[in-house]
Design a protein around this nucleic acid. Structure first.
Lengths: 236, 236
DNA sequence: CTGTATTCGATATACTTTTATCGATATGTG
DNA sequence: CACATATCGATAAAAGTATATCGAATACAG
């Protein structure tokens, strides 16, 4: 495989974004296979479990650098380790939640993150009424302590769950404190911040896909009956 | 079924998925422009506000069928209306939340949805302790009443915020009740259900992008050997 | 009225991602 | 061992997206 990069040993950077997004699904399937006692899994097996094509699975797995064995499949354990390394999930990262509202609380209580190499340490909120409370065994601390604790605990990841209007300010504060990666759950699209990675969970985009598909489903049934098995009521 | 260009206005199906995901951002920017009294907005102005290229904005806006005026820009009001129509946001849709945990409560309290044409009517939970409570002015009802109320109120959208292990069952129940679109916030990848649109908010995928970028940022000091202890099951 | 700066839309090009093809390797059966 | 089946990896093709170019339309200043 020759590509224009090929300089660095770790080619994590060059893994295609769509591939990266699929990697967690592979981990889930592979861990299940491992529990079932499988030492190897074929691309077609993985693909079948996820509703993908086997060839795409092979391409994705090739991207993380694991070689399979013709006639056998891919070594499950090795594969999991390689994927987790590619994602940086081999070493758990500590994270702070900024904004101890409903969403922040929900995320703080989500245990699945442990498997994703993410460890939520504490929550921060500017509301004095919330400070001092404990949610899911994690303390809610005042924003004033944020910068100091980021430095002392070497926390690199902050999860933004503040109201939309506070997002920009909170992001700037986090960047100032030395946060390297922001997981932005607010509807606010943040301006790029130098040296800070921002990944947004865009509910509006997700809902847009859902509702446009729904709209075309309903709209299509009025014009054509080609694929519609049942007749939805025309409620416009 | 073939996608023809015959219909001038209603070719929502053919809008590219990446474009659809960007449409909500345009709406946000355009509404701001409208508030500032602008009647027209140029593609470069919109692009600048969102960190995109003007040409991409023009292409996206062309996809929703609005024509701009050379030297002037795009008519703001018309554009908003066209985008909202494309997304099915012109008529608000009622939705039920299944699972009145932290996440479900958070979503039920999120007012931004109103602007996205989504109206959360009630929450459902199988836990008798939660039933009867009210969150954000919305009642938590028992799952037993779900099917009946879907039919009576013609609700088409359900928001899944149950624990991972309950996701498949809840989805089947929703489909049975006549739900047409499922917005899946659980980590469970649902098998395709006939006649039901499923859109998943995949936190693992989002986190994968974040952490892989963070890992490659740290970059050169990457040599680590770690065996991850597995977590039994994920739980929202 | 003329020139300059904007801006759009159509077409073309480049890039990314997915899907297809095919030869080679491995397993298992009779 | 011969043969059918399963599987991978490399290469190629196709499909899908993003970006570049350029002529034409518009506004505005001089």
């Amino acid at each position: 495989m020759l590509r224009s990069y090929a300089m660095t040993e770790d080619r994590q950077i060059s893994i295609a974004l769509p591939t990266i997004r699929r990697l967690p699904m592979y981990v889930a399937v592979l861990e299940k296979a491992l529990q079932d006692g499988q030492t190897h899994a074929s691309s077609s097996q993985i693909a079948g479990a996820l509703g993908l094509e086997s060839i795409q699975v092979r391409k994705d797995l090739a991207a993380v650098g694991v070689v399979g064995q013709p006639g056998v499949g891919f070594p499950v354990g090795e594969l999991i380790a390689a994927i987790e390394k590619s994602l940086g999930w081999d070493n758990a990262s500590d994270a702070f939640v900024i904004g101890a509202g409903h969403l922040g609380t929900a995320l703080a209580g989500y245990r699945g993150f442990a498997r994703y190499g993410l460890n939520i340490v504490a929550l921060f909120d500017s509301d004095p009424a919330k400070v001092g409370q404990t949610v899911h065994g994690k303390k809610i601390l005042p924003m004033e302590k944020f910068a100091d604790l980021v430095a002392r605990l070497h926390v690199r990841i902050a999860i933004l769950t503040v109201p939309a209007e506070a997002a920009t300010e909170s992001a700037a504060l986090a960047a100032e404190a030395g946060i390297k990666a922001l997981w932005n759950f607010t509807p606010t699209k943040l301006a790029p911040i130098d040296g800070v990675i921002v990944e947004r969970v865009d509910l509006a985009a997700s809902l847009a896909v859902l509702s446009s598909r729904l709209a075309s489903l309903v709209g299509a049934s009025g014009a054509t009956r080609a694929q519609a098995a049942d007749e939805p009521e025309s409620e416009v």
